[in-house]
């Protein structure tokens, strides 16, 4: 077939190739345009952001927006919010990944009474939308004295309540040969030793995938911050941006865009450096990005 391709069909194929790339590329650029618009707008002088909205590249470049943005408001620097978010996202993520890994090990490798019940419970946490529990959770945390602290944003996550991660790690453990466990057992390893010395080191790819997803979700988490954090000083980035953008609180759109760009940096870095893990995570477990 390929030997018999005539000159005209080859040229036809070439043209189709070009049309394909032009279409796919144009659509890709359209998809990225909003982000690019925000990025370039953040370097425009703030009073020209909207008068030149149709123009992508700034005619005069300025860093003023970043200076003003980082100065923050009511005496709190924007660095403070970034630090708060970093702290919340990191601790919650370490807690989630660690607890999910050990629970996944128990559910996959150990035989004990109630394992099936726990598995079903885990599936329920995966299916049950967290927002349903919004109100009662608030009232419950209020009883525990956790409101206006980071506790509701961190502590629950340290108890493997996100079935997604347990499930993802369980799937990965499935691929580790059982003979490794048995060999370790014969060498006198306890069940805990098997987890820490045999399974855990092999879990690295699954742990990285869980880590980056959890980190991005916690970094973006707006609703729980809105509900539980009331001191401006304790605000995470998501909430600070909301405050920044509220009508009346500012008209410095340049600075607002600048800080929006800054808030996206962690996700973009993760995206650029861990793309493989993200793609694998989405493809194998249907996690939403």
């Amino acid at each position: 077939m390929s030997m018999a391709v005539s000159h005209s069909t080859a040229r036809h194929g070439h043209q189709r190739h070009i049309v394909y790339h032009v279409l796919v590329c144009a659509f890709a650029l359209l998809m990225l345009y909003p982000i690019a618009w925000m990025f370039f707008s953040s370097f425009k002088p703030t009073n020209t952001v909207f008068s030149t909205a149709g123009q992508l590249i700034p005619s005069t470049w300025t860093l003023d927006n970043y200076v003003h943005g980082f100065a923050g408001f009511s005496g709190v620097s924007f660095w403070r919010y970034l630090g708060n978010s970093l702290f919340i996202a990191t601790t919650a993520t370490v807690g989630t990944v660690a607890s999910s890994a050990i629970v996944a090990y128990a559910l996959k490798r150990l035989h004990f009474h109630g394992r099936k019940v726990l598995f079903v419970a885990m599936m329920i946490t995966m299916m049950l939308p967290a927002q349903i529990l919004l109100v009662p959770q608030y009232l419950w945390y209020q009883k525990l004295g956790w409101t206006n602290s980071y506790m509701p944003l961190i502590v629950p996550y340290c108890f493997a309540i996100q079935g997604f991660f347990v499930y993802l790690i369980m799937n990965f453990i499935d691929g580790i040969p059982l003979s490794l466990d048995e060999a370790a057992k014969l060498d006198g390893c306890s069940y805990y030793g098997i987890f820490f010395r045999v399974i855990l080191p092999l879990l690295k790819p699954a742990l990285v995938t869980s880590f980056i997803f959890s980190f991005m979700w916690r970094w973006d988490d707006f609703l729980s911050a809105l509900m539980y954090v009331s001191d401006t000083e304790k605000y995470p980035v998501a909430l600070a941006l909301k405050l920044f953008s509220d009508p009346g609180s500012t008209s410095d759109y340049g600075a607002m865009f600048a800080m929006c760009c800054v808030s996206l940096i962690p996700s973009i870095l993760i995206f650029l450096f861990f793309q493989r893990y993200l793609v694998n995570g989405v493809s194998t477990s249907g996690l939403k990005g």
């Binding site: 050990i102 128990a106 150990l110 004990f112 069940y191 805990y192």
Partner: peptide, 10 residues
């Protein structure tokens, strides 16, 4: 016992 201990967080 180990199974229950390891699932305790959940």
């Amino acid at each position: 016992v180990a199974g229950v201990v390891c699932s305790l967080p959940f």
